[in-house]
């Protein structure tokens, strides 16, 4: 069955619940990294964390745009039922390769900022304790987060995204079975190493 449809969560209820709590912790405490564990084995090029996030949150009421190719598309559409959409209107955008510019996604409106998109990005690695300096809601003072695999101008894109608060895009960074969150409320500064 190597070319067949791969299974989703072995336990749909608790797979999704556990993954949701990891996402909730990641977004309410930006810069913390959370390992999902679990047994989700998605088709390439999806990493387990990114696939789990999409399976947990997308459904027929929440559209999905991704760049992961036809095999992953069959997997994601079958398990979520999420409809396709244009990049500019999608609720969820999953980037396994180069991420689209944050400005290309819907930020919602001043009256309905909650309509802003969620961008799920697969990166090479995420590590606590070094790299960017984050501050804002969910952070007691400052927190450090190092991410490799994002475009060089990501901090500038993030500054523009944060500046239009309460409108904006929220980002979930995924590497392997680990994830971290960047809600639009957070300020990101590139730390100058001594």
């Amino acid at each position: 069955m190597s070319d067949g449809l791969l299974p989703g969560f072995s336990d749909a209820v608790f797979g999704a619940q556990g993954c949701f709590r990891a996402i909730l912790a990641a977004l309410s405490e930006p810069g913390t990294v959370h390992a999902l564990g679990g047994d989700l084995a998605p088709p390439a090029p999806l990493c387990p964390a990114a696939a789990a996030v999409v399976l947990t949150l997308a459904d027929p009421d929440a559209s999905l745009v991704h760049d992961a190719g036809p095999v992953a598309d069959a997997f994601l559409r079958f398990h979520t039922g999420a409809p396709e959409a244009e990049l500019a209107t999608a609720s969820f955008v999953l980037a396994t390769g180069a991420m689209p510019p944050l400005a290309a996604l819907t930020p919602g409106t001043d009256e309905i900022p909650s309509a802003g998109a969620t961008l799920v990005v697969q990166v090479e690695s995420i590590e606590e304790g070094e790299g960017w300096t984050l501050s804002g809601p969910g952070i007691d003072g400052l927190r450090r987060l190092k991410v490799t695999g994002l475009p060089d101008d990501f901090p500038a894109q993030w500054a523009a995204n944060h500046a239009r608060f309460p409108r904006g895009v929220d980002v979930i960074l995924c590497a392997g079975d680990r994830l971290a969150g960047l809600p639009r409320s957070v300020t990101l500064a590139v730390t100058l190493e001594a």
Partner: peptide
């Protein structure tokens, strides 16, 4: 639950 979870995550972000 999925619908409520999506709402909770946006509420946390704003």
């Amino acid at each position: 639950k999925r619908m409520i979870r999506r709402a909770i995550l946006k509420a946390v972000a704003i």
